[in-house]
């Protein structure tokens, strides 16, 4: 087998080992390369920032744990921003996994801000049928599922819920998603029928190309996609955290992939010239 053929058929295990080393290296030895800001993430931050004090904002974890690296920094920044701007923060989830995760990932910033449960923020938990919750909440958000929060206290007992009876009373929805149901459902069930005009989306990188098309069409009002979006939010909020730290690892990973693509193509053309490949 010629060198070119070998370049074309590198064992995937070698690729995996080199990639693993390349990604691990900056995690142990951070480099701190500057991250370019992303416009849709800047817009998201600004839209949320400009909401008046007292605006009810839903933060919904439509995600699984796989989104931790990209979405946890976003949740921390945006919940902190909302608390800073004195919005009424309503945590919830359309995914069963998200219910625990939104609690865990936001409790740090909530404790830092000294936010009071029931006054500054509330967690209304998860409904086993998210589609029915989205439908029912258009008419009655409190009783769309069980009428209680995640610790089973009636929502009517909380001051934060004063004046919040249906979807149209919500100023904005910030959805953090890894799949379906996600931002598209908030768009369809709430925004498209005029219940809530502001849908902001934090998405994993895989969903970002789709979400970007919706952002460009004006169907969502802000978008933070992947680590780049999370890093942009951190930069705007002056809260440099794990998104920046992980960006170096992502950079090295991308470079290794590009290098192997180049190696593969050199091998392909060399082998083609030598007549080993048609």
């Amino acid at each position: 087998m010629s060198v070119y053929s070998k370049m074309m058929t590198v064992d995937v295990r070698i690729i995996y080992i080199i990639l693993a080393i390349a990604i691990a290296f900056p995690l142990f030895f951070p480099i701190g390369l500057p991250v370019a800001s992303e416009k849709p993430a800047e817009v998201l931050y600004q839209v949320l920032h400009d909401l008046p004090a007292g605006s009810p904002v839903i933060f919904t974890a439509d995600l699984s744990a796989s989104g931790k690296t990209e979405l946890q920094p976003m949740i921390e920044v945006l919940v902190d921003l909302s608390l800073q701007q004195k919005h009424r923060v309503i945590l919830m989830a359309l995914w069963a996994e998200g219910a625990n995760l939104i609690t865990t990932w936001s409790e740090g910033v909530i404790a830092e801000r000294g936010a009071v449960y029931g006054e500054d923020y509330i967690n209304i938990g998860y409904c086993p049928s998210p589609y029915s919750w989205l439908e029912n909440s258009r008419i009655d958000i409190r009783n769309a599922w069980s009428g209680v929060d995640y610790i089973r206290t009636p929502l009517d007992n909380y001051r934060i819920m004063d004046g919040i009876n249906k979807a149209s009373d919500i100023a904005a929805v910030v959805t953090f998603g890894t799949g379906d149901p996600g931002y598209t459902h908030w768009m369809q069930y709430w925004r498209a029928v005029g219940e809530c005009d502001i849908i902001l989306a934090g998405q994993v990188a895989v969903n970002t190309p789709n979400a970007l098309a919706q952002f460009n069409a004006g169907n969502i009002q802000g978008l933070a996609g992947g680590l780049g979006g999370a890093a942009t939010l951190e930069k705007m909020h002056n809260r440099i955290g794990s998104a920046h730290g992980n960006s170096d690892a992502q950079s090295f990973g991308h470079m290794i992939i590009i290098i192997f693509i180049i190696v593969g193509n050199i091998g392909y053309f060399g082998a083609k010239k030598a007549g080993e490949v048609k």
Partner: peptide, 25 residues
């Protein structure tokens, strides 16, 4: 949560091998 993260992380390696195999001119 950790197992889900680990499985999701596999995508990184799979993208590398898929791109290396598929991205030929």
């Amino acid at each position: 949560v950790q197992l889900g993260n680990a499985t999701f992380a596999l995508i990184c390696f799979y993208i590398a091998s898929a791109a290396y195999r598929a991205f030929r001119m």
